[in-house]
Simulated scan of single mutants.
Amino acid sequence: MRFGAVLRSPLLHFFVLGGLVFGLYALMSPPETRAPDEHVLHLSEAEMNRLADGFFAAWGRVPTEAESRGLVRDWAIEEVMVREALTLGLDKGDAMIRNRMRAKMEFLAEAPAAAMTPAEDVLQAFYTEQAAQYARPARFSFAQVLLPQDATEAAQAALLAELEQGADPADLGQPTMLPPRLDDMPGPSVARVFGGGFVAAIDALPLGRWSGPIDSGYGRHLVRMDTREEAELAPLDSLRDRVLADWRAAQARKMRTAFTDELLSRYTLDLPREGAEAAQ
C-alpha cells in the first residue's frame, strides 16, 4: 500500500483524532485550571482498538472522520459518567452491578482453562469416567399392544395367544395414538414416551416373543422385543473436540471453586445473632 493511501485511511484518522481531542483539551486549559491527574481521561491504544473493532464488527467498515470523533466522544461520556457514578456511590446496593462484577471475577478465575491442553492419558481418563455422557444409547425395535384397563387375566391370556398366532398388533387391545411398532428407537426416546421403568423392563425381555404385561405411563402393555442394540462407547478420536471442550469446562469449574474458596478464606463472616445460630 502506498504511503499516500495510508494517510487517507479513515482508520488512521480515527487514531489521530483520539489523540487530538485530548491534546486540544490540554492546550486550551491553562495549567492552573487543569484537572488533577486522576481526572484525566486517558484513552489507551488497546481501548481505541476496541472501539475501532466494535465499529467494524457492526458496520463492516472503518469509521469516517466524523464517526471517529463520535466514538471518542461517546467513550469519554461513558468514562466520566461511570467515574462520577462511582464517586456518588451509585454502585452500592445495586444487584445488577454486583452480579456483573461477580461474573467478571468468575470469568477471571476460569479464563486460563480455555487455553489448557491435557495430556492424552488425562483426556482418555476423563472420557472413560464420563462414558455414560458420550455413549451411544441402547436402541430397541419392538411391537406393543396396550391392554384395556379392565382386562382380566383371562382376557390378557387370550390376547397373548392371538398375538403369538400372528395377529396384527394394530387390530388388538385398547385404541391408542401409540404406534403398534417402534423401530431402532434410542432408550432415552423410549423413556420419554413410555417412562424410564418401561425401558428397564423391556431391556430384560427375551427376543422374538410376546411378553408382559409391562407397565408404562399409559397402562399395561404386551410387548414383543425384536432387536436390541447395547449401548456403545465410540473411540475418543471420534468425539475429541467435544470431550476436550467438556474437560476444559470441568477445569474451569474447579478453578472457580478453588478461587472462591481462597477468597473466602481471607475473610471472617460476621452474621447477625439469629443468622449465626441458623448457620451452626
Results as ranks from 00 to 15, higher is better:
Asp168Val: 11
Asp183Glu: 15
Leu90Asn: 01
Gly166Arg: 08
Phe194Pro: 01
Gly93Asn: 10
Asp237Ile: 06
Thr128Cys: 01
Asp183Lys: 10
Ser68Trp: 00
Pro63Trp: 01
Pro31Arg: 15
Ile77Leu: 12
Ala52Phe: 02
Pro118Met: 04
Gln124Met: 10
Asn99Asp: 11
Gly208Trp: 06
Ala157Pro: 03
Arg83Ile: 10
Arg224Tyr: 05
Arg50Phe: 01
Asp74Pro: 01
Gly195Thr: 07
Phe198Tyr: 15
Leu90Phe: 11
Gly89His: 02
Tyr267Val: 07
Asp168Ser: 12
Ser265Gln: 12
Ser189Ile: 13
Pro188His: 10
Leu86Pro: 00
Val193Thr: 15
Glu120Tyr: 03
Lys92Thr: 13
Pro213His: 02
Arg253Lys: 09
Lys104Gly: 06
Ala114Ser: 12
Met105Gln: 11
Pro31Gln: 14
Leu244Val: 05
Arg256Phe: 00
Leu17Arg: 08
Phe140Tyr: 15
Gly173Met: 04
Arg253Ile: 03
Gly275Gln: 15
Glu38Gln: 07
Phe194Asn: 07
Gly197Glu: 11
Val199Glu: 06
Ile202Tyr: 03
Ala231Val: 06
Trp59Val: 03
Ser141Arg: 08
Met116Phe: 13
Tyr218Trp: 09
Arg253Gln: 13
Gly70His: 05
Ile97Leu: 13
Leu207Lys: 11
Ile202Trp: 01
Leu159Glu: 14
Leu71Gly: 06
Glu38His: 05
Ala5Asp: 12
Gly173Pro: 05
Trp247Ala: 09
Gly18Tyr: 04
Arg100Ala: 13
Pro31Ser: 14
Phe259Ala: 13
Thr117Gln: 13
Asp171Cys: 05
Arg192Ser: 14
Leu269Ser: 12
Thr268Met: 03
Ala157Ile: 03
Pro10Ser: 08
Glu232Val: 15
Ala155Arg: 07
Gly89Val: 03
Gln124Val: 03
Ala35Ile: 05
